[in-house]
Amino acid sequence: MSAPPVRPRRRGLGIRQREALWGFVFVAPWLVGFLAFTVGPMLFSLYASFTNYDITSRADWVGLRNYQTLVGEDPRFWKSLGNTAYYTVFSVPLGIAVGLLIASLLNQDVPGQRVFRTVFFLPKILTGVAVLLLWLWVFNPEVGLVNNGLRAVGVPENSLPLWFQDPAWSKPALVIMSMWSAAGGFLFYLAALRGVPKDLYESAQLDGANSWRQFLTITIPMISPVIFFKVITGLTAALQYWEGALVVSEGGKGGPVDSTLFYGLYMWETAFTEFRMGKASAMAWVLLVITLVITAVQLQLSKRWVYYEGETK
């Protein structure tokens, strides 16, 4: 590292003010972009949530009616919220576990790292419609990989899940799919794992801590900021999730029997099939509030388990 250029301090500004000034300089790109491209559409959708906006022919003020309808009269709103909650509760922790497990294994000194890393990143690269057909085969009740596996371990033919054909099994199928896709997330943790100072482990070993103990007392705390990032972004993504429903049901309508009618899918239908963008906007803001509340709770909890080595308070 070469020596930093020495610059004379500007007169009149204290260290604090200089730092604050630099702070604004650094966040300026985001602030400008936010004001230019994001805040307008966001506020518009907030306004629209109080209207009967249908995108092309009207936008009359209706007060709280969209919100009242959702909460008070619309069973599909609650149904979709329930489906999304189910998906979130299972897919987020499992996804993080899968990513962490793979990252930890890869952090061991095993041969073939490059190949393994590439393989585990494949689920992130494989996207789009091609994957759709794939999953239909994997979960085919008769010849799919999953049921063949279950048969092999002795599950009787009549108790084999029908997966996408059965409202009771369609969501678990999607959770399994989500774990596959989550494998690619290992990269986030691996990047963080590589930053954990080796000497920490060495000294812990001297202290006689076994591998599991080291994992809990060194690895997890040291990469906890990244885990926290995955918790928050994972929650946000899961709460907005709906693509899977397109795989399960013909035409992506949320079947069988609304069992994959996720919040996002219902919002899409409301906005673009029924053209009720006002109501859809209300749904979006309800979701935003829900997400923010969960995030705030997580933020409070994080004070107990997330450890920032280089924090600036």
């Binding site: 599909r76 409202p167 309508k253 949320g254 079947g255 069988p256 029997v257 609304d258 009618l261 239908e269 099939t273 029924e274």
Partner: peptide
């Protein structure tokens, strides 16, 4: 006024 009415019918049929 109800372009997505089909889901209610599907539900009835399934039930």
């Amino acid at each position: 006024y109800a372009p997505t009415y089909g889901t209610y019918i599907d539900k009835a049929v399934d039930e």
